[in-house]
Amino acid sequence: MLRMTGHVEAADGQADGGLLFVMFHGYGNDESEMVRILDAVVAVGDGCSADAAAVARPGWLSFRGTYDRPYMGGSYWYPDGCDVASRRRECSVVGDEVVSLLDASALRNRRRVLVGFSQGGYLSYRMVREHPGVFDAAILLSPSFKGEEDATPPDSRTRFFLAYGGEDRTIPVDDQLTARRVLDASGRLVFHEYPGMAHAICDAEIADIRGFLESL
Rank of each mutant, 00 (worst) to 15 (best):
G133Y: 04
F191D: 08
V93H: 03
M1I: 01
I206T: 15
L19C: 00
A54Y: 07
E130R: 13
A85G: 04
D208Q: 05
L140K: 03
Y78L: 07
A106H: 12
S62C: 07
A104G: 11
A163G: 09
M127G: 06
G166V: 04
V115H: 11
G74P: 07
L107K: 03
A40C: 14
V35F: 03
Q176D: 12
R36F: 10
G45W: 01
L101S: 05
E130F: 06
E167G: 01
S62E: 01
V35G: 06
I206E: 06
V182P: 05
P79S: 02
G17T: 06
G73Y: 01
G74R: 04
P143W: 02
R88K: 13
V35L: 11
E31L: 15
V8Q: 01
K146F: 10
R69W: 13
S100W: 01
L177N: 15
D103C: 13
G133I: 13
D150F: 11
A200D: 08
R188C: 10
A151G: 13
D16V: 01
L19H: 00
P195G: 07
V35P: 07
V41N: 09
L123G: 12
P143F: 04
R108D: 05
R69C: 12
V8P: 04
A53Y: 02
H25E: 03
A54G: 11
R89D: 10
Q14W: 01
I139H: 08
C91G: 10
I171P: 00
A185P: 11
L20I: 00
A106D: 12
C202T: 11
Y122D: 07
L123S: 06
D96G: 10
D68K: 13
D68C: 09
D68H: 14
S215Y: 03
F191G: 04
M72T: 14
D51Y: 00
R112L: 04
S86Q: 14
I201F: 12
Y71G: 10
Y71N: 15
P153E: 10
E214N: 11
Y125N: 15
V113S: 03
V8W: 00
V173L: 15
S62F: 02
T170S: 13
